[in-house]
């Protein structure tokens, strides 16, 4: 099997060594907008919480890349192996220069969510919320690491990637997670889907990345989408 065929026929799964992850403190601080948190003491609470990441050993990411012949990219939908995804025109437009699609999953594992709940139940509200935030950011960071890994794997073939896009954003329905997971191996990266399309562990993300010789990344353009409760919009504004 030549290397390019192998890339198209393997579901790649990568455990992530948590000691290699460094979430910027400012990223976490950004969730605490009240200036009451602008103190050295709070800063050291963040440091302590960030150190807990070292104990998390179920942070993973992975992807499956489909051969271009199995993928059709239309104006507002994507078809993979005959399964049609209503990705909507905002997202689909971002794939217009792509030849194919990689389906990705990344997860922070169960630990941050579990520890966050334990702290909250103990009354350590701020520390608990901090770990909840860290869990969300870890899942995103695992997604960033995944993008680097895909880029690295594809570079010998002169293929590039787009940003990653997930069901739930830019009018792509969350319920389409079911179709998405139907194209991945069971419990891929340790992530499962509930009947209501909720990812378990909760601190996980999944979605599409466009791949192709002319594919490219773009800045997130929140102005073209009207979902005001979006995680990325709230972060970017």
């Amino acid at each position: 099997m030549n290397p390019e065929d192998k890339i198209f026929q393997t579901a790649f799964e990568f455990p992530i060594d948590s000691s290699l992850i460094s979430l910027p403190k400012e990223l976490i601080k950004g969730w605490f907008k009240n200036e009451a948190y602008n103190t050295e003491e709070f800063s050291s609470i963040i440091d302590n919480s960030l150190q807990k990441i070292n104990r998390y050993n179920n942070i993973k990411c992975g992807f499956k890349l489909f051969p271009p012949r199995e993928v059709e990219i239309h104006n507002d939908s994507v078809v993979i192996q005959g399964i049609e995804f209503d990705t909507g025109n905002i997202i689909t437009k971002r794939f217009r220069k792509s030849d194919t699609i990689a389906i990705f999953v990344s997860t922070a594992g169960k630990e941050p969510e579990k520890e966050s709940k334990e702290l909250m139940n103990k009354g350590d509200i701020i520390e608990g919320y901090l770990l909840d935030v860290i869990g969300s950011e870890l899942a995103e960071e695992a997604g960033n690491i995944l993008e680097s890994k895909i880029t690295e794997l594809l570079s010998p073939f002169n293929m590039h990637i787009t940003n990653r896009y997930s069901p739930g954003y830019c009018n792509w329905k969350v319920s389409e997670q079911k179709k998405l997971f139907s194209l991945l191996p069971e419990k891929f990266c340790g992530v499962e889907l509930t009947e209501s399309s909720l990812l378990i562990p909760i601190k996980s993300i999944s979605g599409f990345i466009g791949v192709g010789k002319n594919a490219n990344k773009e800045d997130y353009q929140c102005s073209i989408c009207d979902i005001d409760y979006c995680f990325k919009r709230n972060k970017n504004e």
Partner: peptide, 12 residues
Amino acid sequence: KAFVPDVLIASK
């Protein structure tokens, strides 16, 4: 003008 952690700590 207030955010999730502010409500959490007020509630505590």
